[in-house]
Design a protein around this nucleic acid. Structure first.
Lengths: 131, 131
DNA sequence: GTTACTGCAAAGCTTTTGCATCCCT
DNA sequence: AGGGATGCAAAAGCTTTGCAGTAAC
């Protein structure tokens, strides 16, 4: 938690609860997932505070906002380079290591200043493909 | 247009207008972009019909729904394998050829049945990086 | 003549915002 | 004590839906 104080966050119980829930979380939760989990521990927790906290964490680079689920945004506390397997049926998102280099040849960049790469593999997870 | 009749579409003026607008379109338009463009030619055009048409085209595999813009869905009539450069400032989306093989090693698939791969490079486009 | 599509308005969801109150530092 | 954070409710977007009327086949 020291690292959050260092980036200039005012440490409220609400923020600590969100940070604690996200710590090491591999589920790529939505804002509602976070709200529901944290609300159990902290019944006064509001949606506005969840979004407010996520917005600051995004800004500070401590959380990634994923736009891979057509229905809602998902959040990833793992900001290291990795790719995603996504089930188009149950919307499960699973981390996998990147299998190739980040580099895009300059000729392909069209003068963009590229900052980040996202790679997603869409399909059916083991459970959903059974049906 | 023959190919749309062949996949079992009832060809209404509204659908033809949407199909014509999407044909060869490289802008990755949103539903609203499509609505505005088609509405000029066909003033009775409604949003419901835009979404209805897109939904059918998606189903038939004639259009890809992109979830790379956090604000709204974008549509891509080019269903061949290619990657995207995305400007996080103006939301412009530019096509680039894929620079590596589709294959994901079986060991990385976690038993998913992978159907599609999406690769996006996020950053600033030439115009937006000037500021 | 049927069946399916259109258009309008209302509803549904996720996310954002305004503002008074509260509390971390 | 002061400035920022919280919580509530309302609002804003995008997208979906219900249904009566209409048009394609």
């Amino acid at each position: 938690m020291e690292k959050y104080r260092r980036i200039g966050l005012k440490l409220t119980p609400q923020r600590l609860a969100v940070l604690h829930y996200l710590e090491g979380n591999k589920d790529h939760p939505s804002a509602e997932d976070i709200y529901r989990a944290v609300h159990k521990k902290l019944p006064t927790m509001s949606f506005a505070t969840v979004y407010n906290t996520l917005s600051i964490l995004k800004e500070k680079g401590s959380v990634l906002e994923l736009t891979v689920d057509p229905d809602k945004k998902r959040y990833d506390p793992d900001t290291g380079q990795h790719d995603h397997l996504i089930c188009i049926s149950c919307k499960r998102i699973v981390d996998i290591p990147s299998t190739f280099r980040f580099d895009l040849p300059d000729s392909a960049k069209r003068n963009f200043a590229v900052i980040q790469r996202h790679v997603e593999y869409y399909g059916f997870c083991p459970e959903c493909k059974k049906r």
